[in-house]
Amino acid sequence: MADIAPLQALARDLRARIIETSSRTGTPHLASCLSCVDILTVLYFSVLRVDPAEPRSPTRDRFILSKGHGAPALFQVLAKRGFYPEAMLDSYGEDGGVFAEHPPTPDHLAGIEAATGSLGHGLPLGLGMALAGRIQRQPYNVYAVLSDGECNEGSVWEAAMLAAAQRVSNLCVIVDFNKWQATGRSQEVMALDPLADKWRAFGWSAVEVDGHDLAALERELRRFPAGDGRPTAIIAHTIKGKGVSFMEDDNNWHYRIPSPEEVVAAKKELGIAA
């Protein structure tokens, strides 16, 4: 096991940047970003075979943030990973730019594989990319991060069935299972439980993991592909607003924007200098 401390430091720094940007630009979905940032950190800084110098390389692994409202987190991660200069994010939220609430199309920002934001689109797109890899004999993997609320969408389960029928083993779903959707508990709105069993019943290899335990995430991501032809679902148990005590598991932060004072308090908790 590699030393996990550098990844933890990265995730802390990314959290601070996401919170600052939300406050400065009035960008919502802060808590949704904080619940998936650990997953994105492990993927981009340990798992994905991507090269910022060659973002369209045919052999690259593909990553789709199917929960497109987590884009404020992805924008920070891609900059940190070197797909574009971090200074580009100074224009966040400005008219005429590309950084706002959802990912733009791949033609408009390096590192983006799909413009998401309407839920239930990323997994079918990713399945098409995974099948294309098989047809073209390119050995890449495709990863998609979905939210639990997104699993309300029927198209997610349509894709799950076809992926299993076609034995698309190079496809990995990570569900950011923070137990909330926009207006309520995901279990109360659409009875998601038992979520891992649902994926298993659909023919996937499914495993549950603490979505904020970077070492555990890395371990499960490295076990993929399953080796028996099944696609992989990693159900990552997460906490909405993770990392800031007054945001954790408080769904008001789905839309709330932090004040400058709250940014200072959050950064203090994260151990990041103001």
């Binding site: 045919p58 797109l125 990319m129 198209s155």
Partner: peptide, 20 residues
């Protein structure tokens, strides 16, 4: 792709974005 047209269209788009 079965009786699942929403997924079929997304799959097609993913293939097209990959050069097919």
């Amino acid at each position: 792709c079965g009786v699942a047209e929403a997924n079929m269209m997304g799959v097609a788009a993913g293939m097209a974005l990959s050069g097919l």
